[in-house]
Computed example of a mutant assay.
Amino acid sequence: MTPTGASLLIGQVGHTRRLPRHHSLRYRVASVLVDIDGPEAPASRGWTFGFNRPGFVSLYTSDYGGDGPSLRAWVEKRLTDAGSTSPIGRIQLLAAPRILGLAFNPVSVFFAHHPRGGLAGLIFEVSNFHGGRCSYAFPVDDPGDGNAAQHLQTKKRFFVSPFNPVEGHYRFRLSRTDEQYRLSIQLIREGDVVLSAAHTARLSPLEPRALHSAAWLVATNTTRIFFGILWEALRLRLKGLAVFAPRRDTIDTLPGRH
């Protein structure tokens, strides 16, 4: 899995809850994939897309990572803490951009590449409605000669949904080519798959014409994500699912704690 050019991703997110009640939800979503050191994209030269500056669509690196000196330093430290010894070259971020200054990212993905191009590590940064953020970092040994899917697993450490306690573990499966992207996440508890989520999308160059052709989807992106999650929560509550509260004064509720 090698770096790609700055891209616009158009696709959908689906959630399927298996226990204790079956429930599913799907909504369309737009995301961008850019280098955190600055995207080489025609769209970044005008008002349509702004990188660390205002734009109809924008991405600010300050919205991600911790409180360190730079986002690159945070990515490198998280991977080092996770056991990586590889040097890091290009780092790309896949996230839902701000639309007119507003965004909500349930899951953002960092692709850290070797200087020679192969994948050196992945970080999944998860956010919740309480302002908390948590990251899951994984060293990867990918020589860059193929697009094999990455299969990863980790203990759940963070409160996300009011219908799930923190207990359990995640299974991630991620694949990406220059044209297709797929991320699936399973929440496993006591040997059972409680919840499955998947983000699938097609990639196109991040150019003004691509943003213009998907104008309506992009313009309503933040609203769709935010209210889609709230709508799911309302339906689950009406189905009688028990609710859990976030842990006070932990990463569940303190922004920037990872």
Rank of each mutant, 00 (worst) to 15 (best):
W47V: 08
H23F: 15
R53L: 04
G55Y: 09
A96H: 08
G118K: 06
G38C: 00
A30V: 11
R98P: 05
L102A: 13
G132Y: 14
I91K: 03
T48R: 05
V34K: 00
K77E: 09
G83I: 12
D145E: 14
V109R: 01
G121S: 06
P115C: 06
V34Y: 04
S44M: 05
L100E: 09
P106C: 14
I36P: 02
F51M: 02
R72F: 01
F49S: 00
D35M: 05
A103C: 10
A148W: 13
W74R: 03
P87D: 08
T85F: 10
D67E: 12
D35N: 07
S70Y: 02
G121N: 06
G66N: 09
G146T: 14
A149T: 08
D145L: 13
R78T: 14
P69N: 00
F56C: 07
P143R: 01
G55V: 11
Y64C: 04
D37P: 02
A73H: 06
A148R: 15
Y136R: 13
I36E: 01
V126A: 12
L102D: 11
G68T: 12
R98Q: 06
E40Y: 09
V107K: 07
P20G: 07
A112M: 00
I99F: 13
V126M: 14
N105Y: 07
G144Y: 13
H22D: 12
G55D: 07
G117W: 14
R21F: 13
C134F: 14
E125G: 10
A30Y: 10
F104E: 14
F56K: 07
S86F: 08
V107Y: 09
L71Y: 01
G38S: 03
G66L: 08
A137R: 12
S62M: 00
